[in-house]
Nucleic acid binder design. Structure first.
Lengths: 199, 199
DNA sequence: TCTATCATTGAACTGCGTTCATTGAGATGA
DNA sequence: TCATCTCAATGAACGCAGTTCAATGATAGA
């Protein structure tokens, strides 16, 4: 039962996510304000807390969508990639870069979110992460056929982290950012040099 | 002139930096509070603003010290490193990791600080960064004698960013952190594999 | 239609960084 | 030494966040 109420709550939930998504994309996570949100959604500030525990919960909902779009972009790039496993890694990493560049503030919100100490990341986060890792470990297994599963898992994580670091510091304008072209060159340099002459 | 006052201001400045440094190291940047600071320093809240423009300025002063300690640690590790340039890279990267792990919250504060959009990083930041980059580019030039200066600069930045990414995600407990030993293994994997068989 | 229930509301609360009128200490000249 | 001026130090008050909760109003069942 309680259909009327439940429908309204669901609609408010969706509306808030869309507004928060737009706000974060355009002005960044730090511009997300409860009162502005309520204004735009045409509801009371308190209503937000009927639907989300707090603003962090709302941000997590936005981040889930962002992460999902990111995963889809990488998957699409992989689908169009050549057969060569090294090139697949390069294409995916550059797709990751492109997504981060074109959705900079939303992408930053994935990592800038305040997390209670000791609390684990939500399930969807680990799942999307795992999805990305599989994209990486598959070509890696072809490139390094002699490494065991544990080493491959470590390599996978290491490569993802490396590309993430290159994109993160490259897009950080404050510390003398790097041109988009040079970020792609760094990614290609690292991955090609890394995958050259496997044992 | 104004000796009495200037001395007091300098003493307060130093005292505030020490207190903020301890607070950040023990409880993180987000636990830095103006009123607590004033309490511990035995001064009024307003006094903080006679000495620092705002709390971000104070945090920058703490970060400058942290960054300097980081540079010193890496330099010390390099001094004790073997002659082999690849091993030098590994030793430095693991020193970077060790510093980040042992000074986790202080190290996070280096990057978590809120920066006004469009504002460049302060000079000391770029200088310390450049210092770290020289440590990396020197061994790289030995490993890759055929690359020109621009490529070496890109490689340097790429390697630093990669190691930074590995440490950053590895130390992030929320996303299923990695053991200290495995972080070192990832660093060694990436760097050794990267430097193997240069053209 | 009436009423008990529960969702919704927004003023109020808390806690933060920052400001500024007031206070008081220190420097200067007689 | 004392009077006076200058400017540093003070902390109550301000503005602005997120969040709460007593009062209100809508909903659903009889």
């Amino acid at each position: 039962m309680a259909t009327k109420t439940e429908i309204r709550r669901q609609e408010l939930r969706d509306k808030l996510i869309l507004i928060a998504e737009r706000t974060i994309a355009q002005k960044g996570l730090s511009a997300l304000r409860a009162r502005d949100l309520a204004n735009e959604a045409g509801c009371a500030v308190g209503a937000i807390y009927n639907v989300f525990g707090d603003l962090t919960d709302l941000t997590l909902a936005v981040n889930a969508r962002t992460f999902h779009r990111l995963g889809a972009d990488v998957a699409e790039a992989l689908a169009d990639a050549p057969d060569d496993p090294v090139e697949q890694l390069v294409v995916m990493a550059q797709a990751y870069h492109q997504f981060a560049a074109q959705n900079h503030l939303s992408w930053r919100a994935l990592f800038d979110i305040e997390r209670a100490p000791g609390e684990a990341a939500p399930d969807w986060y680990l799942q999307e992460m795992g999805r990305l890792f599989v994209y990486i470990s598959d070509p890696l297994a072809v490139i390094f056929p002699n490494r065991d599963a544990e080493e491959l898992a470590l390599l996978t994580r290491a490569l993802f982290s490396s590309v993430h670091g290159i994109v993160l510091l490259g897009l950080d304008e404050a510390s003398a950012g790097v041109s988009s072209e040079n970020i792609d060159r760094m990614i290609a340099l690292i991955l090609r040099q890394f995958a050259a002459n496997p044992e």
